[in-house]
Design a protein around this nucleic acid. Sequence first.
DNA 1: AAAATAACATGATAATTGTCATCTTAAAAA
DNA 2: TTTTTAAGATGACAATTATCATGTTATTTT
Lengths: 234, 234
Amino acid sequence: MQQTNIVMNKCDQCIVRQLSSLKALNKEEVIKLASSKTSYKIKKGEAIFEEGEVTNGVFCIKDGVGKLSKLSANGKDQIVKLVKSGELLGQRSMISNEPANLTAKAIADMEVCFIPKTEIINFFNNNNQFSLNLMQSVCEDLKESENEKIALVQKTVKQRLAETLLQLHDEFGEDADKTLKVQLTREELAGIIGTATESCIRLLSDFNKLGLIELVGKKIMLKDVRALKKLADN
Amino acid sequence: MQQTNIVMNKCDQCIVRQLSSLKALNKEEVIKLASSKTSYKIKKGEAIFEEGEVTNGVFCIKDGVGKLSKLSANGKDQIVKLVKSGELLGQRSMISNEPANLTAKAIADMEVCFIPKTEIINFFNNNNQFSLNLMQSVCEDLKESENEKIALVQKTVKQRLAETLLQLHDEFGEDADKTLKVQLTREELAGIIGTATESCIRLLSDFNKLGLIELVGKKIMLKDVRALKKLADN
DNA sequence: AAAATAACATGATAATTGTCATCTTAAAAA
DNA sequence: TTTTTAAGATGACAATTATCATGTTATTTT
């Protein structure tokens, strides 16, 4: 009794439980979840899963930041999405019954839990609110992906960089020194906006000269959010 | 009794019922469906719904071809997805409880049925197989969107055109004269691959000269599928 | 601390793609 | 059928972006 309580609390108070589709689970379900999950620590740069791998479950992100990306023929890494604590990972391929379409790697040290597919399917079939949540989460991803697809075509690299900087600021916030909290290399930033690393660096340098941002070493501080917004929207 | 049978058969034998998530519905549910749906005919060029519109339900495509697109600031129409008979339309915004993110227009004369949201939610909550199907359908869209997003960045316009021609051939097949069955204008084709109309026309002309395709008036015939595949995959 | 490596930066140049102008042909409207 | 409009085609040119080369500055590793 004592033990189940401890285990339950572990999942019950978890940030993922509070923010993701899992918030729809009832006490009993959370207890089941806690007993079937396994925890991992993943160091910056390491992979959670790789493209083509069969995951057979989803990953809860307790802490850290990760990237979902695909390697191209010419060796460039196109980043499809960043994920942070509170989110679930690998929902799509689990539901589609397919190997992972993308590689998931840690950008900052991560703590994740793995939940086996059988558990998720069970929740999906028996908890309408959970299945609706999961559905809405995938729908949200779809909308975002479609809009990014459109932006890739309709906006210039400069516009996309401005837009991405604003998004990173919105989603991850800033450090005490007012710089962006997510620590991306220029190469990774280029991978998000879909351009060459040099182009990205050059534009950051331009933005810096124009006073839109300030480069503090490798870190980036947004100086003129209004102008960046204007630039992003053309 | 006689009447319910007739109505039920109408939906029961419909191609959408056979191909979409709706295949999971049982007899009773199909009867409910048939009594709540409304049918429309939509002429080529007309809209089913427009961006920003609240649809409050999904559309079944009984016949015809449609495009989901978004108009850019400079007046260009980026096509996100083509839809054909047997598919459902507007699932995402219905589930997300949001106005439509994209505009849906007919590319060829269409017959569609509208199913109100209340019905779909009802099926979703009471029929596990239906909700799983719907989920998988959205997941499939997501995977496709992500892969297209990656292709948009990692491939040249030439490669994307080759790829798109092959996809159109795969998905819609060819007419008796061996030309592609979907009748897209050059502008629409350009909207799919995400390029300027002139660039698209120029590349089609190049492909023609290289013997990869043949231009029969406005129609396109694939002549060398193998070479097109090689080009698309780089 | 020294050496090695990775990340950042910038110039020079080439390739790709977009824009504008003009023309032809096909389709729709009068 | 004639007129008008839309779609397709092609050239000339400009803008954007990628690539290659090279140098500098931070990080790691030894």
